[in-house]
Amino acid sequence: MYQHGPIKLWDEVEEAVLIWQEAGSPHRSGFGLTVTRERRRVWLGDPAGPSWDLPA
């Protein structure tokens, strides 16, 4: 697969899907978003649970 740009977007999508599947494929209402001046982070369950940063 060819990816171009500052981040490998498809790799990020695959990682997010794996986290979702490992968590039992929860409903979208189980996700949250924390945004600060320094960071944008999506999390599952609660902010201390599985999470990943969104690209700026």
Score class of each variant (00 low, 15 high):
20 W>M: 12
50 P>E: 09
26 P>F: 10
53 D>I: 04
33 L>K: 13
27 H>N: 13
40 R>A: 06
8 K>L: 08
17 V>D: 00
14 E>G: 06
18 L>W: 10
46 D>N: 14
21 Q>D: 11
37 R>E: 05
16 A>D: 00
17 V>K: 15
47 P>A: 08
6 P>A: 15
9 L>M: 14
44 L>Y: 02
6 P>N: 14
34 T>P: 05
20 W>E: 06
46 D>V: 04
50 P>C: 08
12 E>D: 14
36 T>V: 01
4 H>K: 12
10 W>T: 13
47 P>H: 06
18 L>I: 13
7 I>E: 05
37 R>L: 01
52 W>A: 08
14 E>L: 13
48 A>D: 09
36 T>R: 02
38 E>I: 03
35 V>D: 00
10 W>P: 00
30 G>I: 04
36 T>G: 05
19 I>S: 09
55 P>I: 02
22 E>P: 04
15 E>F: 14
42 V>W: 01
27 H>E: 13
7 I>F: 09
49 G>D: 07
7 I>D: 07
46 D>C: 11
3 Q>F: 08
17 V>G: 08
53 D>C: 03
18 L>Q: 11
9 L>T: 15
48 A>K: 10
7 I>V: 15
15 E>Y: 14
52 W>G: 11
40 R>H: 01
36 T>C: 03
42 V>C: 01
23 A>F: 04
51 S>D: 09
6 P>S: 15
22 E>C: 05
45 G>R: 01
38 E>N: 08
37 R>H: 12
35 V>Q: 02
11 D>Q: 14
13 V>W: 02
22 E>Y: 08
1 M>D: 04
16 A>W: 03
31 F>R: 04
55 P>M: 01
43 W>K: 10
30 G>P: 02
44 L>R: 01
6 P>F: 12
14 E>I: 11
27 H>M: 06
15 E>G: 15
30 G>E: 04
18 L>K: 15
45 G>T: 09
31 F>A: 02
51 S>K: 04
28 R>S: 02
35 V>Y: 03
4 H>Y: 14
30 G>A: 15
15 E>K: 15
12 E>Q: 15
32 G>A: 00
16 A>S: 11
24 G>M: 08
32 G>L: 01
47 P>F: 00
12 E>Y: 09
